[in-house]
């Protein structure tokens, strides 16, 4: 199971992470988010130890969504060393997400 991160844990789990982090910003009432959910779970398993995959419920954690100016969900943000590397808006396929992860944070 992908960990659900909260506003309070965001700094520790995301910004201070030693490995890159993908955060899926979602909410239970968002149809396209529900479609992305299983993809996020799969990525969490596939990249275990290399990329931390987390999800954040924007209903319960409005502060972080506000900080990153999120105005649409699903939004997925890829972080490295506390910095935003890429921001993906809308439901995309698992292959698209894998390509972005491989190119932006794993290709070195």
């Amino acid at each position: 199971m992908v960990k659900a991160v909260t506003d309070n844990e965001f700094e520790q789990d995301v910004l201070n992470s030693r490995i890159p982090v993908l955060v899926d910003f979602w909410a239970p009432w968002c149809g396209p988010c529900r479609a992305v959910g299983p993809v996020i779970e799969d990525l969490g398993t596939e990249y275990e130890g290399r990329v931390a995959v987390l999800k954040m419920n924007v209903d319960d954690n409005p502060a972080t969504a506000g900080k990153y100016n999120i105005r649409s969900i699903p939004t997925m943000i890829l972080f490295r060393d506390g910095q935003v590397v890429d921001q993906i808006v809308g439901a995309v396929s698992k292959n698209n997400l894998k390509e972005i992860i491989e190119q932006k944070v794993l290709a070195e």
Binding site: A27, W29, C30, G31, P32, C33, V58, D59, A65, N69, I70, R71, S72, I73, P74, T75, V89, G90
Partner: peptide, 17 residues
């Protein structure tokens, strides 16, 4: 601006406004 204020889904994005 799509997803940054411009939207085609009130259900998904209305919450932020």
């Amino acid at each position: 601006l799509l997803g940054k204020g411009l939207s085609h889904c009130a259900m998904c994005d209305g919450h932020f406004f």
